[in-house]
């Protein structure tokens, strides 16, 4: 059987997702041997414009060039994988949509003017259909490895659906909400092994909302703690802001800024 043709791509982001693939130091050579890597711009100079079995894309769409690239990759690929929080949720690049008044566009720079004209930065999944989303900022190396293994074996990969709190409890951590931290654990999908709260850092929401996230309860809890709701909303906007703001439409928290 011919090896699947695979490409690794990045649009606007930090390249941390592609590193999360390479940083499987003990398995990366086996991964490279199991597939036919056609493009990996970060470590290869070669250009390829033919068909692909699997395209991994990290980053958010912030410009016409980014959009053209993801559309072309969709046309060429049987399976597209949105890798990381930028590709799945918009992440930090999309933060500027909620901060317009603070962004100083470089007036002397024509290219940046064009970027502004392009509109709001957005996740890849807003522009093309993808077969899989592997979220996380950065994606969990173990999960990336499991994902690659499962799709190479022809299985279907399922995302973890329970909130971060579940894995956090399994790790026997104390609750950061008890320490008045804006921890988004109850609202956000786990699968990350609750790595942040386990190290003492509150959840910023990099894997997106669980299906039945209750904002009513969360804002109530924050109010009881005396935390400014504006700061709570800003915290929510950090990684999955587009998705969360969509859910908050028509609620009393929509205009909170």
């Amino acid at each position: 059987m011919a090896k699947p043709k695979v490409g690794f791509y990045d649009i606007t982001g930090c390249q941390g997702c592609l590193l999360s693939v390479i940083f499987n130091e003990d398995e990366i050579l086996d991964i490279i041997n199991a597939v036919d890597i056609k493009e990996f711009r970060f470590i290869m100079g070669e250009k390829y414009d033919g068909p692909l079995d699997i395209a991994f894309i990290e980053g958010a769409v912030v410009s016409k060039e980014d959009l053209e690239m993801v559309k072309r990759l969709r046309e060429r690929s049987k399976v597209v994988v949105a890798l990381g929080t930028c590709a799945c949720h918009g992440n930090i690049p999309s933060l500027r949509s909620f901060n317009e008044k603070n962004i100083e566009y470089l007036k002397y720079d024509k290219k940046n003017e064009k970027q502004k004209d392009f509109g709001e930065p957005s996740p890849i999944i807003k522009h093309i259909n993808v077969e899989y989303c592997v979220s996380g900022c950065p994606p969990d190396r173990e999960e990336v490895k499991r994902f690659i293994k499962e799709i190479l074996l022809g299985k279907t990969f399922y995302n973890y659906q329970d909130p971060v709190c579940r894995e956090c409890k399994l790790n026997e951590n104390g609750c950061l909400l008890d320490h008045d931290k804006i921890c988004l654990g109850p609202l956000i999908k786990g699968g990350c092994r609750a790595v942040c709260p386990t190290s003492g850092l509150e959840c910023y929401g990099c894997r997106g909302l669980i299906d039945d996230a209750s904002f009513e309860d969360y804002f109530k809890l924050m109010k009881e703690k005396g935390i400014d709701p504006v700061m709570v909303k800003k915290h929510m906007e950090t990684f999955a802001g587009i998705e969360i703001n969509e859910k908050l439409k028509g609620t009393k928290w929509e205009k909170l800024h």
């Binding site: 606007t12 100083e104 800003k234 915290h235």
Partner: peptide, 17 residues
């Protein structure tokens, strides 16, 4: 590289962000 405007994104946010 597409611009991400980090300096502007930080304005108005909590120091620990």
């Amino acid at each position: 590289e597409g611009s991400r405007y980090f300096q502007g994104l930080l304005k108005g946010r909590a120091w620990n962000d």
